[in-house]
């Protein structure tokens, strides 16, 4: 990982940062396997550079960004809570820039209502994408409403702990939407498309009763198979005092984002 030049960004939290070791060894990135350690141990063949990120669809100026172009955005430290849908959480010092800054460069058309994202497909480099028993359909796809995508909390991350992003965390560029469950944070993005209709997303395609399009962190709406009322902070407490903490609405970012969902039934739109 190469060091990145950053400036302190907004929204920092004074909660203790999860260790680099935990952030880089406990991951869900099924392209490398479904085990938590697989993304770290089985991503050796993956080549995140060179890289191109195509941005197109309903835009005035479609554009392709390489890694240098992505790292040329003014990079900020964004220290966010990350709440996984599996009821664990971390505090992660990301390095990135607002997605809005990138969208501004391609000039979305008035007809664009949603943003669709797509992860790279490289079976030869990603062992989870080859063989029998692949866990899901590739490419991994995600989406946001345009106003969610333009929210200042939403960033594209190119780094972690002041250096370029490790492979297991979604090198070279990934999405971070801190008020949503972690699976919205699509990794190793190759395509961003502005679209008119709500895009298909990987987890809701696979199990629509359990995962919706919005996936906002919500302690009041349980996953059908487990409670979302509390969470385990990775690396905190110990074996005998795994002190669960209560999960906060919108992962503690309600003040910033709750108004995006005025009038929307969050039980129906989970």
């Amino acid at each position: 990982a190469a060091p990145l030049t950053t400036t302190p960004g907004p929204y920092a939290t004074d909660e203790a940062h999860t260790s680099f070791q935990d952030i880089t060894s406990y991951n869900n990135f099924y392209e490398f396997g479904t085990g938590k350690g697989d993304p770290a141990s089985r991503s050796g063949d993956f080549q995140p550079e060179p890289w191109t990120l195509e941005v197109g669809g309903l835009v005035g100026k479609p554009k392709t960004f390489d890694v240098d172009a992505l790292r040329a955005f003014p990079l900020e430290d964004r220290i966010y809570r990350m709440r996984c849908v599996e009821a664990w959480s971390m505090v992660i010092p990301w390095v990135g820039f607002p997605l809005a800054a990138l969208l501004d460069q391609v000039e979305p058309l008035g007809s664009a209502k949603y943003v669709a994202f797509e992860t790279v497909v490289r079976p030869e480099e990603m062992p989870g994408q080859r063989g029998l028993f692949q866990p899901m359909e590739w490419p991994y796809v995600e989406g946001l409403r345009l106003d969610e995508a333009r929210h200042p909390l939403t960033i594209l991350s190119v780094g972690l702990y002041g250096a370029t992003l490790p492979k297991q965390n979604g090198a070279p560029v990934r999405l971070v939407v801190p008020w949503k469950y972690g699976f919205k944070g699509i990794k190793s993005i190759v395509r961003i498309t502005l679209v008119e209709d709500e895009p298909v997303t990987s987890w809701s395609r696979m199990q629509p009763s359990e995962y919706g399009f919005y996936a906002n962190v919500n302690p009041e709406v349980d996953h059908p198979r487990w409670s979302q009322a509390s969470e385990t902070r990775i690396g905190e407490g110990g074996f005998f005092n795994s002190a669960r903490r209560p999960t906060l609405p919108f992962n503690g970012y309600a003040e910033e984002v709750a108004s995006l969902y005025d009038g929307l039934d969050l039980r129906a739109n989970y």
Binding site: S25, T232, F239, F240
Partner: peptide, 15 residues
């Protein structure tokens, strides 16, 4: 391993 803090990540779930 769990009691001595040697299971990284989510030790309780792993156990």
């Amino acid at each position: 391993l769990g009691a001595t803090g040697q299971i990284p990540g989510n030790a309780v779930k792993v156990f």
